[in-house]
Write a protein that binds this DNA or RNA. Structure first.
Length: 482
RNA sequence: CGGGGAGUGGCGCAGCCUGGCUAGCGCGCCUGCCUUGGGAGCAGGAGGUCGUCGGUUCAAAUCCGAUCUCCCCGACCA
């Protein structure tokens, strides 16, 4: 009880999840509101997480044969108009540049909401032969979507992301790439962010505007709502046909190319907050935490002479083995204040060093995830800390997985479906006949949408549609979502 | 974009209905002393043209209008 009162500037999570989320983000300095609608500043503590995400994901992107490039921020209106479904999907949220300096532009420029159009145009110039394929390019960029409703990290007018854009000879290759990336995202999110995901195909209603098929990873936040964390699209030949991306194949026949695109965004930071955070604040998995360890010297007596040097030494020992450490040697705050502060900021492991510890050649380690306290000898401390951090990473995932399992259920009647969505939330598996009407009516009546049709469920399933009772071959996963 | 709520020092709020003298309070911040193993104490101090623009009035945080931003609930979305 007393402990929960420590963080007085943040609404408790159990009391009001939405306010907890917003309070926490500002109080811990992940982000702050900018004065323009829907825009935010990602502050250094939040941006550090993005840099870790970038570094770790970029490694995976490159390891799978992709290279980085950069395309223009602006897209001529005519380019967006080429693919009708794409245009219709994005038109309501495109920001336009109509003027350059004092002169009105002849053709207005879209601030990219996504880059398929401009990249499609460039690819048509670069792809001529089967020997040019595959093209495997990724870009790290910002995009702008003029959304009606915004929320820090989850949906902002401008956001940062990576978008991969590939070109292939055949449908099969494009489809293989689409699924390979989906799996890469799954592994990345589960390994580095410690968030378990469901993955599968999106319905026609939910797919990317202009794609043949969209696949996504979806995770459950701790309020029981789902969050789409990444998407991978098989674009088919839609963009190739309108941008004329053609190549001569092995038989000297001219073919339209097959494409994919895929992305994850700064939304992942919001997911970290909502998936792992608790009443004491943020809880970051060590893999992406801005600081993995915070060292707090216990300031008693002439601690600057006796204790601080040991803390400094400990910091360099840990840094030498690649651990991100912050030594909080500020004398204006008490140790107790620092404990709470760094707990709120989600640092995975706290190391306390006081006179007792100096005498015994040890430190007191306190895990953020379970508040467990343990004495760690400074002999071989590097390996021990690494071991603890690995343990935290693993147990955060296990905890989130247990939560996901507890909050996933299969229902067989519409009554049950409505009751679970209304009261317990979480993922709800139910048979669906495949009709858009049933999907739409369910959404209208329950606010739940089909998050994914799990890959392994796509075949060999038989049941009755939860809504219309007709024969259904698809076991879909429904949830209310962000 | 529709419905509702809200903008007052960094944060959380009071004051507004019923206009009036120096715009208050808690936390935070600054200085000093003293403390420091779970958000210490005392003393002194700084900081606000009350979101913005306009109107009414002798006089506006307060009344009226417009506008910007935030939050909640819906329609749209990474």
């Amino acid at each position: 009880m007393e402990e929960e009162r420590l963080v007085t500037q943040v609404t408790p999570k159990s009391e009001d999840f939405s306010r907890w989320y917003l309070d926490l983000i500002r109080r811990t300095e992940l982000a702050d509101y900018a004065p323009m609608k829907g825009m935010m500043v990602i502050r250094p503590y939040g941006y550090a997480i993005w840099e870790n995400i970038q570094r770790l994901l970029d490694e995976r992107i490159k390891a799978s044969g992709h290279v980085n490039a950069y395309f223009p921020l602006f897209i001529p209106e005519g380019f967006l108009r080429k693919e009708m479904e794409h245009l219709q999907g994005f038109a309501p949220e495109v920001a336009w540049v109509t003027q350059g300096g004092a002169d009105e532009l002849e053709e207005r420029l879209a601030v990219r909401p996504t880059s398929e159009a401009i990249i499609g145009f460039m690819y048509s110039k670069w792809v001529k032969s089967w020997r040019d394929l595959p093209v495997l390019i990724n870009q790290w960029a910002n995009v702008v979507r003029w959304e009606k409703v915004t929320r820090p990290f989850l949906r902002t007018t401008e956001f940062l992301w990576q978008e991969g854009h590939t070109v292939h000879e055949t449908y099969d290759e494009a489809q293989a790439e689409t699924l390979r990336i989906l799996d890469m995202y799954r592994q990345f999110v589960e390994t580095e962010l410690a968030i378990p995901v469901l993955y599968g195909r999106k319905t026609e209603q939910e797919k990317f505007a202009g794609a043949l098929a969209t696949y996504a990873i979806e995770a459950l936040m701790s309020d029981g709502k789902a969050l789409q964390m990444g998407t991978s699209h098989n674009l088919g030949q839609h963009f190739a046909r309108v941008f004329n991306i053609r190549f001569e194949d092995h038989n000297q026949s001219l073919q339209y190319a097959w494409q994919t695109s895929w992305g994850v965004s700064t939304r992942l930071i919001g997911a970290l907050v909502m998936a792992h955070g608790d009443d004491s604040g943020l809880v970051f998995p060590p893999a992406v935490a801005p600081f993995q360890v915070v060292i707090i010297p216990i300031s008693i007596g002439n601690w600057k002479e006796n204790t601080l040097p040991r803390a400094v030494e400990l910091r360099s020992r840990l840094e030498r083995v690649g651990i991100r450490v912050f030594l909080d040697d500020r004398s204006e705050y008490t140790p107790g204040w620092k404990f709470s502060e760094w707990e709120m900021r989600g640092v995975p492991l706290r190391l306390e060093i006081g006179p007792r510890d100096v005498k015994n050649n040890q430190a007191v380690a306190v895990r953020r995830d379970n508040k467990e306290k343990l004495i760690v000898s400074l002999d071989g401390v590097e390996a021990k800390i690494k071991g603890i951090l690995d343990g935290i990473q693993a147990s955060l995932f296990d905890k989130a997985l247990a939560f996901q399992k507890e909050n996933t259920c299969q229902v067989s009647s519409y009554q049950e479906f409505k009751s679970v969505i209304e009261n317990k939330r979480g993922f709800v598996q139910a048979f669906w006949c495949g009709s858009e009407e049933c999907e739409a009516r369910i959404k209208e009546e329950t606010m739940a949408t089909i998050r994914v049709i799990p890959l392994e469920e796509e075949k060999n399933q038989k049941g009755k549609c939860i809504f219309c009772q007709k024969e259904a071959g698809t076991l879909a996963v429904f949830a209310r979502s962000y």
